[in-house]
Design a binder for these strands. Sequence first.
DNA 1: ATTTAGCACTCGCAGATGATGAGTGCTAGC
DNA 2: GCTAGCACTCATCATCTGCGAGTGCTAAAT
Lengths: 342, 342
Amino acid sequence: MNLSERKKKILSAVIDENFLTAEPVSSKQLQENYLKDFSSATIRNELATLEELGLLYHPHTSSGRLPTKDGIKLYVDEILPSIKSASVEDLTKMFDAKLDNVSSVLKTTAKAISEATNYTTIMSLSLYDFAIIEKVGLVGIDENSVLAIVSTDRGTIKDLITLEANEEELESSSKILTDIFRGKTLRQIENSDFLITSEIEKYKYMFELMVEMIASQEKKNNQIAIEGKNKLLEYPEFADSSKLRSAFEIFEEPSSLESLLDSTGQNIETIIETDENSPVKDCAIVTASYKVGDKTIGKASVFGPVRMDYKNVISILKGLSSEISHKLNQPNKNNSSKKGDD
Amino acid sequence: MNLSERKKKILSAVIDENFLTAEPVSSKQLQENYLKDFSSATIRNELATLEELGLLYHPHTSSGRLPTKDGIKLYVDEILPSIKSASVEDLTKMFDAKLDNVSSVLKTTAKAISEATNYTTIMSLSLYDFAIIEKVGLVGIDENSVLAIVSTDRGTIKDLITLEANEEELESSSKILTDIFRGKTLRQIENSDFLITSEIEKYKYMFELMVEMIASQEKKNNQIAIEGKNKLLEYPEFADSSKLRSAFEIFEEPSSLESLLDSTGQNIETIIETDENSPVKDCAIVTASYKVGDKTIGKASVFGPVRMDYKNVISILKGLSSEISHKLNQPNKNNSSKKGDD
DNA sequence: ATTTAGCACTCGCAGATGATGAGTGCTAGC
DNA sequence: GCTAGCACTCATCATCTGCGAGTGCTAAAT
């Protein structure tokens, strides 16, 4: 769509003003706060045109204008892109996360974004596609329990497993398993998506125990964090408790979250839900995805009312995004020598 | 307070009916649903008496009655005690919790109680006052990290610590530390509330590392679980989003929670907050405490509107309570021989 | 051709009014 | 001690009204 500069300015002004007041915006308001050089009548004419284009609407004859879904889309996609990304140095520690504290790092990062944007923030991160195994260790604890340790370039996962074995057995198993696992990602082990040679057959039981342990640890390290749910309470859009309820119910249900955040793979994507029947009607979600190769290993999503401060949200997610891709493209100190394996 | 049976019956009826409708209760309602043998006029007389006693009130002349704080207190303390405790066999797994999954057990238990009562449930549990140390192990992982393992009768805590040491040193340290720690609770170690003999001086550094590790692990195993926050949304009392907000803010703030749940030590205690200025005005909290000796090691609190189904809540918490004290008084298979130490 | 002043028109909103009915308190009789 | 009956109170709801914010349109000005 090709809008005149003035029309763009007016559309932005409507969205910005509506963000501040949460009310329909009148031509007079626009004139006084954004376009002092024109009369309200002129602005009214422009507003009428923007309405014909489907970018604005007004709920009743004598009320001000509100942006439609299309209007916001256009604003986000064509008017905002020029904004700079925010500086977010202190947020990128997320990608220095170690496997044994992913959830706490996710939590603090999500909390930070939530504080910065003032919206609910949902983060997910799977180091399982990212961490490269370096070594497998098996240590006898007592008669029938063994501590299994898998160390990666991203930290260590460990768990007690039930197994009777003497020290020599453990030692040789450690060696063999290290040989098999080294250089692979945890995900590959979990899926066992590589050839099992006859050599491994002997250690099949051990091997399966380890796969199981790795899989169970992934579930345990609950790799999704939702912070700032209470932020929603600040917005009049959620004053109605049934709206709040449906939003909170979505947060509870990991599966519905998954589908909601299932981005098409764009770097930053904005979803605006105005479907009358959607549980998150009148909500907007801005999602940034972080990838290594073609695998999405992390996502940061900001959830709020359609009347959202997109400028701020996108600039923060953008900043995080650029910092992170910078990080990901730096060879990692610990695993640079082994990275070629997969 | 000595009430006639009929007055008790009427007070109960008011509270029960108000629980169902969330509205003031009229004499006619009571007559139809609870006291068919009397006319509404008789009931009105009784209601007036109960009002004089400060157990009921009515917001305006032509409205039905509502219980006051005192009325509910009396109901809970003097009328309800005859109710049986619910069977809750499947909830007591909480006290079979192992240190390394306290938080997940707390979570599921809190969730179960929340589902059973339909209110928000807050649980806390500290095995640190409860678990008796059996053994300390130090295992070298690589050049400068050591896996410290403290096994207790309630599971194992473990963490990587940074330390350079050869195998012999680790072995002898393990032995000495085991001698010092064995039979003590984790809390005692954390507080170091026992005599440090000159013998220990040599291992002071190791000792301090272990104390630190134990303390940090306690923080890590976030030992408080709040489940069913969304339940509040179902109650008209929380339709007003500012009320909801203050409740949710309390849930966020662990310190304010602490003070709120700081029970006087009764087995089951009901707090009804009607103070005009309290952030949790018109909320009720029923807390059950679980003790070993004089230490409270766990608490289960149910949070909801003053108009709460006390009967159900208390019977569930009571059931949990009795199951647990039964459990706690059974000598534990693993630590019966060492329990005399403190 | 674009902008603007002016004005009629629309419609939500807030306050006033009145009818309704639920519920009580009281009194008198059973 | 219980209850029928009735006057009284007061919240609630629907209806109405005036107000004012805001628009759309037209005609004049730039």
